[in-house]
Design a protein around this nucleic acid. Structure first.
Lengths: 193, 193
DNA sequence: ACTGTAGGCCAACGAGTGTTGACTTTCCAG
DNA sequence: CTGGAAAGTCAACACTCGTTGGCCTACAGT
């Protein structure tokens, strides 16, 4: 399959179409979820034949898997003051989503994870590898373990209602209003009662 | 089609299989969402032929629609003290979900609404017809309009992470811990800052 | 100029889907 | 006892899907 010579800048041709397939797949999976996304549609978007998708990614599940490489880009929370932590979190996710929700990988994942085991498992991984440690840096490990779940529930709840379900009561709020409304709530979850 | 005589207690036979189909459909839609639920599987669960499903419900979309009749059974919040409101809400939804999440209609709807426009629209209706008025009774109309969205985001976030995504950080919490953790957060959203 | 190989296309397969119409069985009213 | 409607079965249609294998084309190395 891969020839012995490992060049950093050759294999030009295939790399470009491979990237085109990935880009198209991300968009489709984001908009319609796993089941309603067809290999034929992805190939058509990328301007190539469906069989090329199989050649480069094996099958649909592996293509989906290749799509799910997600970096939340959470800032280092070690030096963030306790009372600024909630607002930092809300602002971070809002900034991430307000840009172009349609192809944000985290929303892609949420959309598919509610019906697809593979996607749900990936969600668990991302949570354990990124969210939990980031909070542990700010709160200490044992407090983080107890609070991280509900914090995630609140942030994902915002993503769900505003960007996936698009509930009018949430979409009509401005980012500022959301930040002012949700930050105290997250503060309440973080505070020891 | 419907004969002139309108009996309240006859037409026995068909009513029972119609109910069996609905029950089976709810379970399937709840567990796998709209796309992955097949008419054949529903019919098999109900112990009848797939064509009967078509006879009684027309097509798959209409069967799905018939499944989505949801009553949140929210209590009357008019006489609930302001500081007991959050705990009342959290307790209500936890009680509803802890029983048998697998066939709770609201979770069915959430699971499908992230990829299905029809389901998302129904979610909007339910929200406008049930959640918003219930909160208006407790907070007054203009405060409710501003807060209802974020309250819904928090409650649906709980449902999403605990029952659909099953994030370990959330599923390992006891109902009591969730109530103690989340009620203050919802209080914070409701309070005018 | 020749050839091997990687990149790409085309046509088809097998399985599963929603849906339909004709046929059979059940059962109650006359 | 006997029609006839209601309830249910059966087999098939038309379609889409993921996936496969054979074929064509461009092009770099010799």
């Amino acid at each position: 399959m891969t020839q012995g010579t490992e060049n950093t800048s050759t294999d030009r041709r295939s790399d470009r179409t491979k990237a085109a397939i990935l880009r198209a797949a991300r968009e489709r999976f984001a908009e319609h979820g796993y089941e309603r996304t067809t290999i034929r549609a992805v190939a058509s978007d990328a301007g190539i034949d469906p069989s090329m998708v199989m050649r480069y990614f094996g099958n649909k599940a592996q293509l989906f898997d290749a799509t799910l490489t997600i970096d939340l880009r959470l800032p280092d929370l070690t030096d963030v003051a306790a009372d600024e932590l909630p607002q930092t979190l809300v602002r971070h996710f809002l900034a991430r989503w307000e840009g172009d929700p349609a192809d944000d990988a985290l929303l892609v994942l949420m959309r598919s994870a509610v019906t697809n085991e593979q996607a749900a498992a990936r969600m668990h991984e991302i949570f354990a590898a990124q969210v939990a440690p980031a909070l542990a840096a700010a709160l200490g490990p044992e407090a983080a373990a107890r609070r991280a779940g509900l914090v995630s529930a609140q942030l994902l709840g915002l993503g769900l209602t505003r960007y996936l379900l698009r509930l009018p009561a949430v979409t009509t709020l401005t980012p500022d209003e959301i930040e002012r409304g949700l930050a105290p709530a997250i503060q309440a979850v973080l505070d020891p009662d």
